[in-house]
């Protein structure tokens, strides 16, 4: 049984990655699916004023919202899965989670920027490729 991690931000690209994994599982791949959503940390000024619990509840709500469609797709395909919502830098958190839970593969969608746009915008995908210690499958 392989542990496969799919970062999900609710975007069409991330859902394509989920669909791709569902198809692979349909073809006989035996995998334990982990979905992870990363929420950007709120500015310190905000967290100082509203209290830790509100901040974490807020992140949880936003994360659940982003994961909703991906969970529905997996539920429909009757594939059990684990969801995680984390706060922090996207690439770093994904790489750290993959490390901690000994994931065998990361499957993620890319928005398919051109190289120039990528260079200019600096993508979290590029950063993750640099940080990840396991194979990363990119779904376009």
């Amino acid at each position: 049984m392989q542990n496969i991690l799919v970062p999900v931000d609710g975007s069409p690209a991330s859902l394509r990655a989920v669909d791709f994994l569902i198809r692979r599982i349909g073809k006989g791949l035996r995998a334990r699916v982990h979905l992870i959503n990363i929420q950007p940390a709120l500015p310190e000024a905000v967290t100082t004023f509203v209290g830790k619990k509100s901040v974490r509840d807020f992140h949880r709500d936003q994360g659940k919202d982003a994961l909703k469609k991906a969970c529905a797709a997996l539920d429909k395909a009757k594939i059990p899965h684990q969801t995680e919502i984390a706060i922090g830098d996207v690439a770093k958190s994904i790489a750290a989670y993959a490390d901690e839970t000994k994931c065998d593969e990361i499957v993620m969608g890319t928005r398919g920027h051109t190289q120039i746009a990528n260079l200019l915008l600096g993508s979290s995908t590029t950063k993750l490729l640099h940080l990840a210690k396991v194979p990363v499958t990119l779904v376009k």
Binding site: R56, G63, D75, I79, P80, H81, T83, E84, A86, K92
Partner: peptide, 21 residues
Amino acid sequence: KEARQKKVDIVASEHHGVSGS
């Protein structure tokens, strides 16, 4: 600052089984 952050900060963790609707 980034170099010092190593761990992942999880706020919620859930298991979705097959039997659920």
